[in-house]
Design a protein around this nucleic acid. Sequence first.
RNA 1: GGUCCCAUCGUCUAGCCAGGUCUAGGACACCGGGUUUUCAACCCGGCGACAGGGGUUCAAAUCCCCUUGGGACUACCA
Length: 548
Amino acid sequence: MSDKLIVTRFAPSPTGYLHVGGARTALFNWLFARHTGGKFLLRIEDTDLKRNTPTALRQVLSDLRWLGIDWDEGPEVGGPNGPYLQSERLEIYRSYADRLLREGKAYYCFDTAEELDAMRARAEAAKQGFVYPRPAVFPDEKEVARARAEGRPVAIRFVVDAPRGFVVDDLIRGKVKFGPGEVGDFIIIKSDGFPTYHFGVVIDDELMKVTHVIRGQEHLMNTPCHQALQDALGFRRPAYAHMSVTVSEGGGKLSKRERPASLRKAIEKNATADRAALAAAGGLTTEALEDFLRGDCMPDMPAVEAMAKLLGVELPEINIVDFFRSGYLPETMVNFLGFLGFNPGGEREILRREELVAVFDIDRLTKSNSLFDRRKLAAFNTEHIKMCDPEVLLRHFKAYLDEVHSPLRAADDAMLSRMLRICLGARTLAEIERKCRFVFADDETIEFDPAAVDKVLRKDGGVGVLPLVARRLGELKNVTAEAVEEILRGLAEEKQVGLGKVAQPLRVAITGTTISPPIFDAVDMLGIERTLKRIATAVRRFGSGTSE
RNA sequence: GGUCCCAUCGUCUAGCCAGGUCUAGGACACCGGGUUUUCAACCCGGCGACAGGGGUUCAAAUCCCCUUGGGACUACCA
């Protein structure tokens, strides 16, 4: 590593929630900066008026913070190289564009979208790559004025001059060559006056003193454009590392469209679903819903989620918030994402954040694409829940409960900590929440799982032991999990049966299901009074006529 | 269509750059068994890969070429 300060950045465009792909890019840049003691900065590339929203920006920042990815310069923290929103840097881009124009390294163009489409179609028909035909003489001010008057779009194109082609020296892939004439003149200032991505990154990376650019492989093809620009402007070249792409089960790049797509599939499969009710849930017209089903349009995320909830289908997590809402820990995400396309080489895979920072290295980034494996993610989460500091875990749990508006919010810290302790081994916080929910159910209107009742209380005659269990528990003066255990074990021994014969019926009686935390704790958490009440209810409802 | 990237168990990967120590290691998943008051967790065991074909070499998962397969880009999106 050189002695120079290393500066990396993450430069999202705020078009929606931060998704796993973006988070991984951010993470690698952050890890590299932290590993080398360099700086990590955040820049917002909000130059697409049509797609950016202010709420998306807030969401991206909060998602990064949730992951524990902090930035040394950027929105809300400031820094010497601001502003960090490209939309606030328009004069800067304009002045560089003017310079290029003056030097004959850029020129105005007035093509309409239709004309451009036609040119591209012709190129493809001729089995050629499309390269914009540079005019022999660049338009002058008069022609620009005329084009404007005619209502044509006026954009600025950069003159790509590379008789020997390009060589991108990539930290991961080595030297990647591009032949001359493969990169055409591209637009640097759009007709709305905003810079294109290519122009913005090159200028900002220079001005913000970025030394290393770690980004997705999808940008490898853009790099010659960036280098041409850097040369024309007399800029330094940052080092580039183009990482592998994360692909999804269906093949192809992991995309935000996956959630709406899987909702669409679910609706199609469920022919009996009430379309009108669905549309209403999503705040859509029925026509809009049909358009969506045909693939013509995409509703926004809240609409998609509302419809999924109504249908009772689980959408695959793709945005970072989705994972939060599904009960994953930020530590898990950092560890897992950090191992997608990176591997330190040892045999350990479960690493804490500091350990990951310590072992991270650009030249251990993988070349080939990787598949996002949700099962492995779940396994990682189990491990992180187990090794998480109890206090930190409690904080995560409370944040999760708030996010999903859980009834468990009513529990105090001692109770929540206990739930976490006895549910060790759970895959997600959601699983823990589900398991412990019974404590907050109403004693009278508890919901019974018919299969559980049938199997445990009826078929196995479990309801028969319940009165005796209730009597013994009622005699308890000092209720603790241990005391409950003693009673239940004693009872089982007396009746010459396994503990399961006593524990299962009790479990179904007080939770309505066969799944719960360890039964002794479950009774203790509920309290004897409520336990007895629930047993009585169960006996009343399922006892008559089935006693053997 | 054009350009570029990639290729080890089902999946994530170690090994490849500096060829022999690789009958290819780990993790997740899966299967079998154990533990057990449920679900998990836990313990033990098992299945399982160098895409194919040519070279180079005493020797190739490792180097070269071709084929095949996958992926990215091909926008006045980023």
